[in-house]
Measured scan of single mutants.
Amino acid sequence: WEITFERNGKRITVRTTDHRLLELFEKLWRNGADERELERLAEEINR
Rank of each mutant, 00 (worst) to 15 (best):
W1C: 10
W1D: 08
W1E: 05
W1Q: 08
W1T: 09
W1R: 09
W1I: 11
W1H: 11
W1Y: 13
E2D: 07
E2K: 03
E2F: 09
E2G: 06
E2R: 03
E2Q: 09
I3S: 07
I3Y: 14
I3T: 08
I3M: 14
I3K: 15
I3G: 04
I3W: 12
T4P: 01
T4R: 03
T4W: 04
T4E: 06
T4H: 13
F5W: 06
F5Q: 00
F5K: 02
F5S: 00
F5T: 01
F5R: 04
F5V: 15
F5N: 00
E6W: 05
E6V: 12
E6P: 01
E6R: 02
E6S: 07
R7A: 12
R7G: 04
R7T: 11
R7H: 08
R7P: 01
R7Y: 08
N8M: 04
N8I: 02
N8S: 05
N8P: 02
N8Y: 02
N8E: 09
N8H: 08
G9L: 02
G9Y: 01
G9R: 01
G9V: 00
G9M: 02
G9P: 00
G9F: 02
G9T: 02
G9K: 02
K10N: 09
K10D: 03
K10H: 14
K10M: 13
K10Q: 09
R11P: 06
R11W: 12
R11C: 09
R11T: 13
R11Y: 15
R11H: 12
R11G: 07
R11A: 13
R11I: 13
R11N: 08
I12G: 00
I12Q: 01
I12E: 01
I12W: 14
I12Y: 14
T13Y: 05
T13V: 12
T13Q: 05
T13N: 04
T13K: 07
T13P: 01
T13G: 01
T13E: 04
T13I: 07
T13W: 02
V14P: 00
V14M: 04
V14K: 00
V14S: 00
V14R: 00
V14E: 00
V14I: 15
V14F: 06
R15L: 06
R15A: 09
R15K: 14
R15I: 12
R15S: 08
R15Y: 11
T16I: 08
T16Y: 05
T16V: 08
T16E: 01
T16R: 02
T16F: 07
T17F: 13
T17H: 14
T17C: 11
T17I: 08
T17Q: 13
D18I: 04
D18F: 04
D18M: 04
D18A: 06
D18T: 04
D18L: 03
H19L: 15
H19P: 13
H19S: 12
H19N: 10
H19W: 15
H19E: 10
R20E: 11
R20I: 11
R20G: 11
L21E: 05
L21G: 02
L21Q: 11
L21H: 10
L22F: 11
L22N: 01
L22T: 02
L22C: 03
E23G: 07
E23H: 12
E23I: 12
E23L: 10
E23Y: 08
L24R: 10
L24V: 09
L24S: 07
L24M: 15
L24D: 07
F25R: 00
F25L: 04
F25V: 03
F25S: 00
F25N: 00
E26I: 15
E26K: 09
E26P: 00
E26S: 08
E26L: 15
E26Q: 11
E26T: 12
K27G: 08
K27M: 14
K27F: 14
K27R: 13
K27V: 13
K27T: 15
L28K: 09
L28S: 09
L28P: 00
L28V: 09
L28C: 07
L28Y: 09
W29V: 08
W29F: 11
W29C: 05
W29R: 03
W29N: 02
R30T: 12
R30F: 13
R30K: 14
R30H: 11
R30N: 15
R30S: 12
R30Q: 13
R30W: 13
N31H: 08
N31A: 09
N31D: 15
N31F: 05
N31S: 15
N31E: 15
N31P: 01
G32V: 03
G32L: 05
G32D: 07
A33T: 13
A33P: 02
A33Q: 05
A33W: 08
A33I: 10
A33S: 07
D34H: 08
D34G: 09
D34E: 08
D34T: 12
D34C: 03
D34N: 12
D34S: 14
D34L: 15
E35S: 10
E35F: 15
E35A: 10
E35D: 14
E35L: 15
R36L: 15
R36K: 15
R36Y: 15
R36A: 15
R36F: 15
E37W: 07
E37G: 02
E37N: 03
E37M: 11
E37D: 10
L38P: 00
L38E: 00
L38F: 04
L38I: 07
L38Y: 02
L38T: 01
E39T: 11
E39H: 06
E39D: 08
E39P: 00
E39F: 07
E39V: 12
E39Q: 10
E39C: 06
R40T: 12
R40F: 09
R40C: 10
R40L: 14
R40I: 13
R40H: 11
R40N: 12
R40Q: 14
L41W: 09
L41R: 01
L41M: 11
L41V: 10
L41H: 02
L41F: 13
L41Q: 02
L41A: 05
A42K: 02
A42Y: 07
A42H: 02
A42L: 12
A42R: 02
A42F: 06
A42Q: 03
A42P: 00
A42M: 09
A42N: 02
E43Q: 09
E43Y: 08
E43C: 03
E43S: 08
E43A: 09
E43P: 00
E44V: 09
E44R: 10
E44F: 15
E44P: 00
E44H: 11
E44L: 13
I45K: 00
I45Q: 01
I45R: 00
I45A: 04
I45N: 01
I45W: 04
I45H: 01
I45S: 02
N46I: 10
N46L: 08
N46R: 04
N46H: 06
N46W: 07
N46G: 03
R47E: 12
R47W: 08
R47T: 14
R47H: 13
R47N: 15
